Simulated assay, not measured.
Amino acid sequence: MRMKNLMLVLVAIFLSASAAIAQERGNRQGPGQNRTPEERAKAEVERLNTALSLDQSQRDSIYTYSLQQSTAQQALFQQGDGDRDKRIEKMRSFREKYDTKLKSILTEEQIKKYEEIQKERSQRRSSRN
């Protein structure tokens, strides 16, 4: 009887540990996964300001446009129409529009630096995949 109780306790401990590990993995999603559009827009402005030394007008313009984009992207994901390829294409379109708008706000020097940053990010993404 003692052996049976010991086995039950061990199984319970194992299941609890497995659940805790799974929960922790779920919490380690990529940055921005559970953020509101406002939080994502603010984080984007902070990231760009750090990298490009934006002035206040640029920060305000980028925040406004980034908020619009984040809200549209969130709506796209909440639709969940099931067509993954279509959503990926829309996200690509959002990114291209965002880059175009962003470049219209930045100075020539900032655009060059932004393009370098984008190239580095792309290379890091490629190396992870």
Results as ranks from 00 to 15, higher is better:
Met1Gly: 11
Met1Asp: 10
Arg2Gln: 12
Met3Lys: 15
Asn5Arg: 13
Leu8Gly: 00
Val9Asp: 01
Leu10Met: 10
Leu10Glu: 02
Val11Ser: 07
Phe14Lys: 04
Ser16Asp: 12
Ala19Phe: 11
Ala19Lys: 04
Ala20Cys: 04
Ala22Pro: 00
Gln23Ile: 15
Gln23Ser: 14
Glu24Asp: 03
Glu24Gly: 01
Gly26His: 04
Arg28His: 13
Arg28Pro: 05
Gln29Glu: 04
Gln29Lys: 01
Gly32Phe: 01
Asn34Ser: 08
Arg35His: 09
Glu38Gln: 14
Glu39Asp: 14
Arg40Thr: 08
Arg40Trp: 04
Ala41Gly: 10
Ala43Lys: 04
Ala43Asn: 06
Glu44Gly: 06
Leu48Met: 04
Leu48Lys: 01
Ala51Trp: 00
Leu52Gly: 06
Ser53Met: 05
Leu54Ser: 01
Asp55Thr: 07
Gln56Val: 13
Gln56Phe: 09
Gln56Ile: 10
Ser57Pro: 00
Arg59Ile: 01
Ile62Ser: 09
Tyr65Ser: 06
Ser66Tyr: 02
Ser66Met: 02
Gln68Trp: 10
Gln69Arg: 12
Thr71Arg: 13
Gln73Asn: 08
Gln74His: 06
Gln74Cys: 03
Ala75Pro: 02
Ala75His: 08
Gly80Leu: 07
Gly80Val: 03
Arg84Ile: 13
Arg87Gly: 02
Lys90Gln: 15
Arg92Gly: 09
Arg92Cys: 04
Arg92Glu: 11
Ser93Leu: 03
Tyr98Phe: 15
Thr100Asp: 04
Lys101Asn: 00
Leu106Lys: 03
Leu106Ile: 03
Thr107Cys: 08
Glu109Asp: 06
Glu109Thr: 05
Gln110Ser: 06
Ile111Gly: 05
Ile111Phe: 03
Lys112Gly: 07
Lys113Pro: 01
Tyr114Ala: 10
Tyr114Gly: 03
Tyr114Trp: 10
Glu116Gln: 15
Lys119Gly: 00
Lys119Cys: 00
Arg124Ala: 07
Arg124Ser: 02
Arg125Thr: 11
Ser127Arg: 11
